[in-house]
Design a protein around this nucleic acid. Structure first.
Lengths: 307, 307
DNA sequence: CCATTTGTTTGACTCTAGTCAAGCAATAGG
DNA sequence: CCTATTGCTTGACTAGAGTCAAACAAATGG
């Protein structure tokens, strides 16, 4: 058990030099070769900044504030670019109906045409690149890129301990409640959610996972009457599923439990959450008899925290 | 045979939309997230162009001509940047000993220190990214990136038909001859190489594979006395091995053979080239009895070009 | 209702990156 | 030996990308 080759839940370990070299080598190759190419083609006759802006406005109307955040631009710089695009008839700007300080931009039909042309060019570029490969190799490439992207996204997600009353904690719990309310045949009563004070300070913890500053997952640890830890409300935003984030949250919650002196953690799940049950089992949890009177609980799990 | 799920040698087929979308999605994610981060950190207090230049000078002395090629810079622009770095005491420039038109740049110890600092920062960035993953996930990521890079390199290689007398053809054949001369216990006599006229025009073809403008592989097709095609001198530069380029060259040579009306191609290999034999077998070649008096040939193969 | 805060605009800059052409020195090719 | 050619430098210029501060209007919080 001590020298298990793979660890069921994440353990922090120093990063191997070859992994760093691999990532850096790929980064050099990719950005200099493919990325640069793409930027060059995307822009064509238009400055890259404007091309990116058009692309980012894309579908529905977007507020300038949103664009500023997404592209990381200076307010003045953005304002001027939008004005230039408006002057060319590619973008229409209007005042936000709800808040007159905000301005929202959307593409005109000419703008839409230009974005389509951009997409055509980018597709042609990708097509030209992939053409040299067999169908099988293309599939391998697509698979490898998907795996890499999944892992890079997971790696970029930061898990932080926040207070149970933190707005991001509430946002996540609301989404969690809505989510399972839709999934449980009997619905879900939000009053069942763990109260903020139980997951704050010494007695418990609340974790929020952030991807690019946006909360995309959470998990709570509280103390049971008998002194064991209890994990509750492990949730992952639909956009961030299938990355392995639930496992990561679980591991972080276990670390929090260890730090609070718990030697064992328990949790329960609803009968309908079969994937969750599989995750718990894979992470070293074993099924135990009912240990509480939770109306939604159907399966009960426990894990001893060793080391 | 007609509907075999995987094709032994490359066949051109339209690129699936999902492969294009996969590559484009990854490109967007990667360049905007990782690449941009990297550039930002790499530069720090120094313009990106100069930072890249320092990195590229790296070890041993490099001629400005070489740097110009590698970074794709304008001669005047490069000249000025080198001068600026020289002024800061990071780079030492001297006249090339062999050709006084050329100038060679190398790092001073201050320059080396700065590049080390660059590397430390880039390593720290990669380390910070990978830290969120388990050791197993890091290994998966490194593997996926290596696969993707291998396939992207292969995809970016262009195979062209050149005249047998073309300098790139000669370069490749010289490298090929030197390569096998070192591998064959009995050495290799370059006089055995196919004469240029046999691989030009209607009777044959000479293919050169280019990676970023540099020849990295070749292959020849000529016509045998009985009208069959013969494939010879399939060679891949050591830097471009393990990408699957030999298979690709083989496939292109077969296409050339079909275009010239050959219904069958043959080839021979030296007893010591066991990997090559494996490739031929995997690409649908079957071993046949000796069909020529080549002193180096030990195994003889044939493939019918059907459809 | 008054003071902040937020979202945006405008003017005035800076710096990086890059182009283009003229010119000079060394070399290569006939 | 003469004429390209190659490699580099210099001057003159441009455009893209971005910063910073002042100003102003709408919304928000006491």
């Amino acid at each position: 058990m001590d020298d298990a080759p793979t660890s069921p839940t994440p353990v922090l370990a120093p990063v191997a030099a070859e992994d760093i070299a691999g990532l850096r080598g790929f980064n050099r190759y990719f950005t200099r070769r493919i990325g640069a190419l793409d930027d060059h083609y995307l822009g064509q006759d238009r400055p890259l900044g404007e091309a990116r802006l058009l692309f980012e406005i894309g579908e529905g109307p977007v507020s300038l504030r949103e664009l500023r955040g997404r592209l990381g631009l200076d307010a003045g710089y953005l304002s001027r670019m939008v004005k230039a695009l408006e002057g060319e008839g590619l973008v229409r700007v209007s005042v936000h109906p709800g808040d007159s300080r905000l301005r929202v931009a959307e593409l005109t039909s000419a703008g839409r045409t230009e974005v389509e042309e951009q997409n055509r060019r980018a597709d042609a570029l990708a097509d030209g690149l992939l053409k040299g490969l067999t169908r099988e190799q293309r599939g391998q490439l697509t698979g490898a890129l998907a795996d890499a992207q999944r892992l890079l996204r997971l790696a970029a997600i930061r898990v932080e301990v926040v207070d149970g009353t933190h707005p991001d904690a509430r946002t996540c719990l609301d989404a969690y409640a809505a989510d399972i309310d839709a999934r449980f045949p009997e619905g879900y009563d939000p009053a069942t959610l763990v109260p903020p004070h139980e997951v704050s300070g010494r007695s418990g913890a609340f974790l929020v996972a952030y991807e690019e500053g946006r909360p995309v997952g959470c998990g709570a640890l509280r103390r049971l009457a008998d002194g064991a830890g209890e994990i509750r409300h492990v949730w992952v935003h639909p956009d961030a599923r299938r990355l392995g984030l639930a496992r990561r949250l679980l591991g972080e919650l276990e670390r929090q439990a260890v730090a609070r002196g718990h030697r064992v953690v328990r949790l329960d799940t609803h009968a309908s959450l079969t994937e969750a049950q599989a995750v718990y089992r894979a992470c070293g949890y074993t099924e135990i008899p009912r240990y509480n009177d939770d109306v939604y609980g159907a399966h009960f799990f426990e894990k001893r925290l060793g080391r």
